[in-house]
């Protein structure tokens, strides 16, 4: 399994940072509030090194969105929010007038739509930057523990690397942490690095 060269990692980091910013902008437009992203860190983790620690999973439980995509590049995108922040986000999407029962009832649908917005913004950014059309499936939402998340990733036999974006978002006075994990195999990563080389 070939690792990324420094040059390729730098270029890919920049592409992923831009894609993550577009995803955050989607969240901002969805909740109608300005969001200040910070501590934007991108890293590449080999699948055998995936643990809750290497993924920087500090919380116990997460709202998890997953979306597969195909094309010249096939991969899976995983979007994570701490479970305690999920209802807060859904409340903001539905508006202050929505009562707690409605928020809880709508959690799955609202998070799927949020995932649709954020993950398609992320993927569209990468697709347009690299001139590589991507077809995406409908996102799925579930809740998982730290260990569930790690196991889910490690059970994906098609994945060789995780390209992780760690973002801290400030919404009003609240600090929310989000992660976008791109699960990708060596062949697809090679397609991307070849594209980067052709565009340089």
């Amino acid at each position: 399994m070939k690792t990324l060269s420094e040059r390729h990692f730098d270029a890919l980091s920049e592409i992923i940072k831009n894609a993550t910013s577009r995803a955050v902008q989607g969240l901002s437009e969805m909740i109608g509030e300005s969001i200040q992203p910070s501590v934007l860190k991108v890293e590449s983790i080999k699948i055998e090194n995936v643990t809750p620690e290497t993924l920087l999973l500090k919380d116990k439980k997460f709202g998890v969105l997953t979306q597969t995509f195909t094309g010249l590049v096939s991969a899976e995108l995983v979007l994570l929010f701490a479970q305690e922040n999920v209802l807060q986000i859904v409340q903001k999407m539905l508006g202050a007038e929505a009562d707690i029962e409605t928020v809880q009832e709508c959690e799955c649908e609202a998070m799927c739509e949020l995932g649709n917005i954020m993950m398609n913004a992320y993927l569209s950014s990468i697709a347009d930057t690299l001139h590589m059309p991507i077809d995406s499936a409908v996102p799925c939402y579930t809740t998982k523990t730290q260990d569930d998340v790690t196991q889910y990733i490690k059970n994906d036999t098609k994945t060789d690397f995780v390209l992780a974006s760690h973002v801290e978002l400030a919404i009003e006075q609240n600090r929310i942490e989000g992660k976008l994990l791109l699960l990708i195999n060596s062949d697809s990563l090679a397609h991307i690095t070849n594209k980067i080389d052709s565009l340089a």
Binding site: G26, E113, N116, I117, N120, S124, A127
Partner: peptide, 26 residues
């Protein structure tokens, strides 16, 4: 009306004689 705003879909919408409006719905 879609979150998928890749250039390919925008071109496809134009070719059909329609427009692609970016989600989110606001």
């Amino acid at each position: 009306f879609s979150a998928n705003v890749q250039e390919t879909y925008q071109e496809e919408a134009r070719a059909m004689g329609t427009i692609l409006v970016s989600k989110p719905v606001n």
